[in-house]
Each structure stands twice: as C-alpha cells, then as structure tokens.
Amino acid sequence: MIYAGLMLVALAALAADWLNTPLRACLFLAALIATVVSFGLDITMPLTISL
C-alpha cells in the first residue's frame, strides 16, 4: 500500500501539467523524499529488530 501511494503521487506529478511547473516539482520531490524514507526504513528496520 505504501508503494502504491508513492506511485499515485508520481502519477499526480505527471498529471500536473495543466496546472504549473512548481506543483509538478513539489509532487515529484514529495514522491522522491517518500521513496528515500521508505528505502531508509527498509535498511534500518531489520537492524532495529536484530538489536
């Protein structure tokens, strides 16, 4: 569900063409940052559990 949500934000960024460039950039950065956080959790969660 998290990944589906990330891809929905990316889809919104693509569809933001009829509005303006800053909105697309914001949605793109939101999806990018959320993916970075998701990747960070993927790395750190097993470490936290093993500790």
Binding site: Y3, F28, L32, T35, F39, D42
Partner: peptide, 10 residues
C-alpha cells in the same frame, strides 16, 4: 525491486 521501479518511473 519495487522501489527501483518507482525510481525509474520518477
């Protein structure tokens, strides 16, 4: 793999 696909689509 899914995250790589997301990065590729971004």
């Amino acid at each position: 793999c899914v995250m790589q696909r997301i990065a590729m689509m971004l």
